[in-house]
Amino acid sequence: MEKRSARNAREVVVPGDLLDDSGMNAGSNAYVHNGKVYAGILGVKNVYHDTVGVIPLGGRYMPTTGDTVIGVIEDIGPSNWLVNINAPYPAPLHVNEVPWKVEFGDTSKYLNVGNVVMLKILMVDESKKIQVTMKDSGLRRIEGGQMVEMSHSKVSRVIGKSGSMIQMIKNLTDCRIFVGQNGRIWIDGDDENASVAVEAIKIIEKEAQSSNLTERVENFIKNRLPQKDNDREEY
């Protein structure tokens, strides 16, 4: 079983590596030169039907419309806040996009530098100018708990297939967890449970490349936090 997963290990490619010379199409992070497909970023080679591309192993988070992210307020203007969302550019949050009625110049009464907010990316235009909103269900200011930061490219592993990984961690640790697409993860719960959840997420970050991760993380949590019978049934 373990041997098989090692054999399935996907190929790490670097910029300029030849991905295909048999006429496949260039997928994301790949480019064509003289009919051949080359890697355009450091990552893992990804073949899907007749397309070959690269899944990045790191790099800056680039916002996409519809992403939910965790931001830190880094500056305040009279009618907006500047939010650090781990992207190349800070995101302006306009007073019209918060769930409160804010008078001109009153911005700091609502959100201050260092406050942490859950946001949704409303729009990213061609010149990569970003608009974000806090006016959507579930979006709010978050307080307490802990925040873990990792490469945005590993967020999908933390979430797992249709949310299986994150749901399992939430169930076993009884924590509130919010995963931002920008690589920031917020965890809140009992001291011991929260620290186990944080460790579990750090394991995923470290071993994002490997398979059977859900099983290993599940065993890790169960080892650290012996589950009550009814909890197990519930899961």
Binding site: P90, V113, G114, V116, E143, M147, W186
Partner: peptide
């Protein structure tokens, strides 16, 4: 610079 801002969550946690 943005990197100077320590989030309130981090501060409270520490």
């Amino acid at each position: 610079m943005s990197e100077h801002v320590i989030s309130e969550i981090k501060r409270d946690h520490i």
